[in-house]
């Protein structure tokens, strides 16, 4: 077994933070993704344009640049706006919030594309039939569209999630104590950088492998009732 010189618990703590950041960012990205997809498919030109601009901009800029922009820029912005609202103290932007919102915002764009494709994969007749039965828009969404689009969304969703988990490594750069930063601290103290970064790399592999397993299970579950050729 590898000797971690007592830094094992610290790395484990960082691993939990990595998972927390990932899950929080995932929740935000799914919300933005659904809104984005509905925007892209909506009848209103301005909504379509807004959603299109959102996905285009996000895909053109590196994650790190966006994160630094949100972290440093957000800091300046908040401290310019807060005094106008009568708040006098200097506000430090929380790296957890900066990290989660940036990653959620980035992956919201990817989720938008995934969900858009999934919605389009549901046969139009199903939706027409729902309306013909007199369902309201929200009923149609909840009863007809949602259960069927999930199946089509899972493969793309899974890919996005795997990339998202790896992207959380960037939060260590803005000072959040995720497992990469914990490893940096341990590496500095013990002069064993290779050991600690390798342990962290292995942790990522464990998280992604478990995810792949769960996603496969989900896919099977949601494909129940679908006849395979």
């Amino acid at each position: 077994m590898i000797n971690l010189h007592g830094y094992g618990p610290s790395i484990l703590e960082g691993t939990f933070l990595t998972i927390a950041v990932s899950l929080a960012a995932l929740a935000l990205s799914m919300l933005l993704g659904i809104l984005g997809a509905l925007g892209k498919l909506s009848g209103s030109l301005s909504l379509r344009l807004a959603a299109q601009t959102y996905t285009t901009i996000i895909r053109g800029i590196p994650d790190l640049v966006l994160m630094l922009l949100v972290f440093f820029g957000g800091q300046v912005f908040i401290n310019q706006v807060a005094p106008l609202l009568g708040y006098e103290d200097y506000i430090d932007i929380n790296p957890f919030i900066a990290g989660v919102s940036t990653i959620g915002f980035i992956f919201g764009a990817y989720m938008t594309e995934t969900f858009r494709g999934a919605i389009l994969a549901v046969p139009r007749g199903q939706i027409e039939a729902a309306y013909a039965y007199g369902m309201r828009r929200d009923q149609m969404f909840r009863r007809i569209l949602m259960p069927q689009m999930i199946r089509h969304a899972i493969p793309g969703f899974g890919n996005n999630w795997l990339v998202l988990v790896k992207t959380t490594a960037l939060v260590s750069i803005i000072g959040l104590d995720d497992m990469v930063r914990k490893a940096s601290l341990a590496a500095g103290a013990t002069r064993l950088p290779f050991t600690f970064y390798l342990v962290v790399a292995f942790n990522y592999l464990v998280i992604t492998s478990i995810s792949v397993y769960l996603l496969r299970w989900l896919e099977t579950r949601y494909s129940a009732g679908v006849i395979r050729a």
């Binding site: 002069r191 950088p193 970064y197």
Partner: peptide, 23 residues
């Protein structure tokens, strides 16, 4: 492929840049 696709680029870079000096 499993290693390089399953771990973050940042960690890979740290392993090479900081890690190799350990040996």
């Amino acid at each position: 492929i499993y290693f390089f696709r399953g771990t973050p680029l940042l960690v890979q870079m740290f392993i090479v840049y900081y890690g190799f000096g350990q040996f």
